[in-house]
């Protein structure tokens, strides 16, 4: 049966929920083991951050969509938190395998990492609800038509809500896609488009951490030799 955009979006939403049925909006036992292996236990900081960011998200969602939608915002956020913990666990498993390390104290106590990961998870949830934003003639916006308010909650709305530098969000995208193989193709494409928007413009705004990185690499000197020109 050919799918209308709405039907496709509804299926994606249902699929996202199915994917996350086993996930909880609290850390799993595996995650708690990683937390305990840290030199500095990050559990309390993570719990507090999720709670605070949840409050900010729900408030901004209600401001954007309407006060009567606060419950809806809370549901969206909880779905995002489920995806956040699910992907975090998957990332740590692959990092453990790659680095043969079990103590992720620095990473798990890094606020930018957590905020970026949660923002990326929420971006997937929001984009799923907006429907096939890529097909609606633009990046979650249909040009000139009377958008539903929800289309304005697509990227980069979440960066403003969390006051998150775009470049930090950019750093988590590829690992997110790698850690979440069940991510729907259109969501992967949406995150890829986020990367393009960030690299084309958002990462070059003043105060972007990208400039610090460029300065640092220049100070460290040439480092890796530039590749010789192809013969």
């Amino acid at each position: 049966v050919p799918q209308t955009p709405i039907r496709a979006a509804m299926n994606s939403i249902q699929q996202l929920r199915v994917d996350l049925t086993s996930a909880s909006d609290q850390p799993s036992s595996n995650l708690l083991v990683y937390y305990k292996n840290c030199t500095v236990d990050p559990s309390e900081e993570i719990r507090k951050r999720v709670e605070e960011l949840g409050q900010v998200f729900v408030e901004r969602f209600a401001q954007a969509v309407g006060q009567h939608c606060e419950g809806l915002g809370r549901k969206r956020f909880n779905l995002g938190a489920q995806l956040y913990y699910k992907v975090m666990e998957s990332m740590l498993k692959s990092e453990e395998k790659r680095l043969s390390v079990q103590n992720f104290s620095k990473l798990l106590n890094n606020a930018a990492f957590h905020t970026s990961l949660l923002a990326c998870a929420l971006e997937v949830v929001m984009a799923t609800y907006v429907g096939n934003s890529l097909k609606s003639g633009g990046f979650g916006r249909s040009s000139g038509s009377s958008d539903s308010v929800e289309t304005d909650l697509c990227f980069p709305w979440i960066l403003d809500v969390f006051q998150l530098p775009a470049f930090d969000f950019y750093k988590v995208i590829e690992s997110f896609i790698k850690a979440e193989p069940t991510l729907k193709h259109d969501m992967m494409k949406h995150l890829e488009q986020c990367e393009h928007v960030i690299m084309e413009s958002l990462a070059w705004k003043t105060d972007s951490p990208l400039f610090d990185l460029l300065k640092q690499s220049r100070e460290e000197g040439p480092g890796e030799q530039a590749e010789p020109p192809a013969t």
Binding site: M91, S94, E95, R98, L99, V101, F104, K106, L107, N110, A112, F113, K171, V172, E174, S175, I177, K178, P181, L183, H185, M188, E192
Partner: peptide, 21 residues
């Protein structure tokens, strides 16, 4: 997600990207 352009090298991951290696 095969047609995503993975660019990270094998020695790169979130630990390195967030300077936590």
């Amino acid at each position: 997600n095969q047609d995503y352009h993975f660019g990270l090298e094998d020695h790169e991951g979130v630990s390195e990207l967030f300077d936590c290696d």
